[in-house]
């Protein structure tokens, strides 16, 4: 029984990490309808931004959020404006462009760092708490809480703010939104900026957990795709729930079967869900056309 509780705890904490990484990816897909292959690289940039703040400004990794978030927002807005906007009539080319961006960012960081694995440490990273016999790292608990907070905050923002309503309007029908006076191009830029900023947020919170390497973004992106497909394409709560499905699947497969098999099991479940319910748990059929869900 103790084993089972431990495995569930590991799965939930891992789910929080995946949810954190995936929520921005799903927002971008829901509104702009691009599968952003570079989302993992934005997480990686957030991590290196944290490292820079930690090393050169001597900030605690969590305090670097005040620098990293605005920077990543600007990066996302610029990428959307300079790379994706000119390709707006060519959706397939936009996907290839994000793949090109993935390679570009990874290799630029490789050249800058020489491939060395960097680390940031926080006093929090040293703390492990005992929750009813389950040993849990405080950094992972913080990541789980942050994922929950971000999901709720994003839901509230989309539902109740003017900008959020405009984003939902564009997601539902961009032509109608344009006729109602919404500046669709501006909404696309802001949405991509917000999605990129969320990746940066994930990067900051995950930096004390992992050794930083230029390839770490690609390690996140495959499970993140599984998260958004299982949870539902374009659904913000779907990304949150999908994170836990993926986290728990990996934890159970890794512990009870074999750690080397956990990705095989995960993507087996992924294919099965695609066959049984192609729109995912929170999505609806044709989500790639409909975009962001209101729920």
């Amino acid at each position: 029984m103790a084993d089972l509780i431990n495995v569930i705890a590991v799965g939930i904490l891992l789910g929080g990490i995946y949810a954190l990484v995936s929520v921005g990816l799903n927002l971008i897909f829901g509104v702009i309808r691009i599968v952003n292959f570079a989302q993992g690289e934005f997480v990686m940039l957030g991590m290196y931004g944290t490292y820079a703040g930690y090393t050169y400004l001597h900030l605690d990794p969590y305090l670097t959020l005040i620098v990293v978030l605005p920077c990543l927002f600007v990066v996302g807005a610029v990428v959307q404006r300079l790379i994706l906007a000119p390709l707006r009539t060519e959706p397939a080319m936009q996907i290839f462009a994000t793949f090109g961006l993935l390679m570009l960012l990874e290799n630029v960081v490789l050249a800058a760092t020489g491939g060395a694995a960097y680390s940031v440490t926080s006093r929090v990273a040293q703390i492990s708490v005992d929750l009813a016999g389950v040993q849990v790292g405080l950094v992972r608990l913080i990541a789980l809480a942050a994922a929950t907070l971000v999901t709720v905050a994003l839901g509230v923002f989309l539902r109740y703010s003017m900008l959020g309503r405009a984003i939902r309007a564009v997601a539902q029908d961009r032509s109608a939104a344009r006729l109602m006076g919404v500046n669709v191009d501006r909404i696309y830029m802001l949405t991509f900026g917000i999605g990129t900023m969320l990746a940066g947020f994930a990067g900051c919170l995950l930096a004390p957990i992992y050794s930083l390497s230029p390839q770490i973004g690609t390690s996140f992106i495959l499970p993140a795709f599984a998260v958004v497909v299982l949870g539902g394409l374009g659904s913000v709560p779907g990304a949150y729930v999908g994170g836990f499905i993926v986290g728990l699947t990996e934890a159970f497969a890794g512990y009870y079967l074999d750690p080397a098999l956990k990705h095989a099991v995960l993507f087996g479940v992924f294919i099965a869900v695609l066959i049984i319910r192609p729109s995912g748990l929170f999505g609806q059929i044709g989500a790639e056309e409909v975009g962001l869900r209101e729920s």
Binding site: L13, L14, I17, E250, A251, P259
Partner: peptide
């Protein structure tokens, strides 16, 4: 390349 190795440590 695994993102999480908690299962390995738990085992």
């Amino acid at each position: 390349r695994a993102i999480d190795l908690s299962d390995s440590i738990l085992r």
